[in-house]
Structures are given as C-alpha cells and as structure tokens.
Design a protein around this nucleic acid. Structure first.
Lengths: 193, 193
DNA sequence: CGTTTGCTTGAATTCTGTCAAAGCAGGTGG
DNA sequence: CCACCTGCTTTGACAGAATTCAAGCAAACG
C-alpha cells in the first residue's frame, strides 16, 4: 500500500526499513472516486497528500463564480491543502479527483516527525519546496507575458503526459483562457502540421 | 548595523543575546547604490538577502529582451537569489537596487547554522516560505484571470507603500502590462474620483 | 434512448499592445 | 543660474488577441 511512496522517496534518498516503518505509521490511506473531494471548502485539514494512483486537481472559485485550476497532481505528486489563498480574496479552495485515485495523507504532526526522524526527508522536502517556488515564478512571468498559444505550447512541451490526460476545458482553466480559445488554438495548429 | 534584522526577527520570536551573536556571525553587510546589482546573471551565489534599508527589485529578461519584475523588496523583506527560473526558459535573472540600499547577506551554510542553532528562526522560516507560496498562487490566479485594471487596484490595495515608491513603468512591468496601459488606467480612475 | 457534458464554430465586442509623438520633469555641465 | 539632455509619463490612432454570447454537434452515461 505504501510502496508508491517508498519508491518515490527512494528515488531521492536511501530508506532503511526502520524509516519505512516510521513513515507508514504517520501516513493514512484513502480512496477517492472520480469527482470526489479531498478537501472541501472550510476544512483546513493542513495535510499533505501524496497521489499514489490516479489524478487530483486543486482549484479555486473566484467571486464571479469561475473556477481556476491551480495545480494538477498525477501519480507521484504532492498536493498541499494548506488552504493557501488569501481569505480576503473571497476565493474558495478545493481539491477533487479527476480520476479514481488513491492518496496517502499526512498531517502536520506526521510531517514534523519525519522532518525529525528521517534526515533524507527533511532535505528532499526543502529541495521540493524550492523547486516548486521557482516553478511558480516561472508560471507567473509566463502568465503575465506569454500569449494563450505560447502558454499552451509551453504546457504541452513541459507536461505532455498531463496534457494528454485532462479534459480540454480543465487545461484551459489552468492556462487561464476560455475553452473556446483553446479549441481555436488547437484547430489552427493541426492545420499547420 | 544588524539592528533592523534583529528587530525584524524579534517581531516573530524572542531573541537572546547569544542568538544575536550567532546571527551576526553568519551575516555580512553590503551597500548598494541606486542601480547597482546585487546579483548579476551567472553568479549563483545562493544566498538570501535581507533589506535593512532601501529598495531592491528582482527581475528576469526574457528571450525577446523584455524585462519582467518578479518581486519588489523594500525594507524588512527578504530576497532569495536562488537564481530560480528554469534554465531552459532562456530567461536570465537579476537583482538590483531601485534606491541606495543596505543589505544583510547570508549564505547557505549560515542559513543552515541558524536553522540548527536558533529554533525560532527555523519555525519562522517555514512560516515565511509557506506564506510566500500562497502569495504566489494568488498572484498566478490573479494574473491569469483579472484584467489590467483589477490587477492594478489589487496591488494598490495590497501594497500601497510600494506603489507609492516605485516608478510607474516598473509597476507596469510587475503587473505584466505596458506603461501606456497603466497610464491610461490611472487617468480614467482619477476622472472618476 | 434521452440527457448531460464537452468540444467546436461564428460574429460581435472589449481589452491591451504597438507605434509614434509630444510634454515634463530632474540632473548635469557649462 | 540657465540650457540642454535624458528618462519617464502621457496621448492618440490603429491592429491584434482573447472574451462573450449563441448555436450546433458528438460522445459518454445512466
């Protein structure tokens, strides 16, 4: 059951049997059916979730009722539900499953325990945080300056497997464009090729 | 010399004299004149910088030669020069001074030492990282979906003191709009009020 | 099947960028 | 102290990109 997580961590640092036991003790397991919520508005569970199988997405709904996808999370990705999002933006934060998925959940105390007991974990956590921060900077600059088509091409190139797996309107939402615009971009591109 | 940093930290957690000594020992001081660079392309110094006085900005120059401001950093802000930015975006990363400024620099080993020796530092560092991550998410959603005017209003409301201090074209760069557009937005708004 | 959901297409409209020019400081050197 | 630069902001005209609104169609689902 914990194998996908162990495998993920072992790609980053060696893991002893003892450490595996510690990890197993702080992680809980949950199955989500397609469409089911991991986090509904209001529940600030403050946990991290590791996607062992399937596909999650996190998104907000703004004050005009539109949803904006923040992140896609296929297998071997973490999502944090640290609700994030400034409360006074009036945006509400959700995580739900795009496919049937299997997640491993960890709460704050579990995280702190691992930081303490599993040296490799602390290090790779730091690295992950850092990497994600720069990815966000890149996305910010990109969204401020690139055209819809450039953003689309970029996404396809960077995450081809995700692009192939999510419905088009969700990709549009992630890219910050309307489904119509995305449809037109794709049409023009297939003509060219 | 270290006072601004101590004061900053003491807002977050109590600081003993011993701890102050540790901090002073890992921090170095530097003065920048207006326009001077803290970080030039290529130098990946991997340090954090605390702005004790003055004003820094970090920005990238994209492959079309346009500059995009990532962050403003007035007094009491940290900037990280973890070059960030994906190397293959062909964007190059800079930090320079908008005003004469005074920074306190810390390298990676210093940071790790503080994480180890100053418990409050580790905690408040975590909190800071988290806060910044959600701020970035907010900015992403905002830049993907809000109009130029909404982004401007938002910025004014969130960072009034920064808005008053930076030249307009830099604010435009941060917001991802042209200086002309910003000028027009401002004109329309003063009419209304 | 019938209904829902997602994707496509068209036309009109809005927003923002580009290009070009002119006004307005602030700073510098004479 | 003044004239001149130079950099920043404003303004106008125009072009292009993307949204909105509306409708149609196909595939998926119960």
């Amino acid at each position: 059951m914990y194998e996908p997580l162990f495998a993920y961590l072992e790609q980053r640092f060696p893991l002893s049997d003892d450490e595996k036991a510690v990890i197993a003790s702080v992680v809980s397991h949950r199955l989500l059916k397609k469409g089911e919520f991991l986090l509904r508005e209001g529940e600030t569970a403050r946990v991290g979730a590791f996607v062992a199988k399937g596909f999650l997405r996190s998104y907000v709904i703004d004050n005009k009722g539109k949803e904006h996808i923040i992140q896609f999370a296929p297998e071997n990705w973490w999502v944090s539900d640290k609700s994030g999002m400034n409360p006074d933006t009036a945006a509400t934060f959700f995580i739900d499953a795009i496919e049937d998925t299997e997640v491993l959940l960890m709460d704050l105390s579990g995280h702190l325990l691992l930081m303490d007991k599993v040296p490799g974990y602390a290090k790779s956590f730091q690295a992950g945080i850092q990497k994600r921060a720069t990815a966000k900077d890149t996305r910010i600059v990109n969204s401020l300056t690139a055209t819809a088509e450039e953003r689309y091409d970029d996404f396809i190139k960077t995450y081809p497997s995700i692009a192939a797996r999510v419905p088009q309107h969700m990709l549009a939402s992630y890219l910050g464009i309307t489904p119509e615009t995305l449809s037109r971009i794709r049409k023009l591109q297939t003509r060219k090729r």
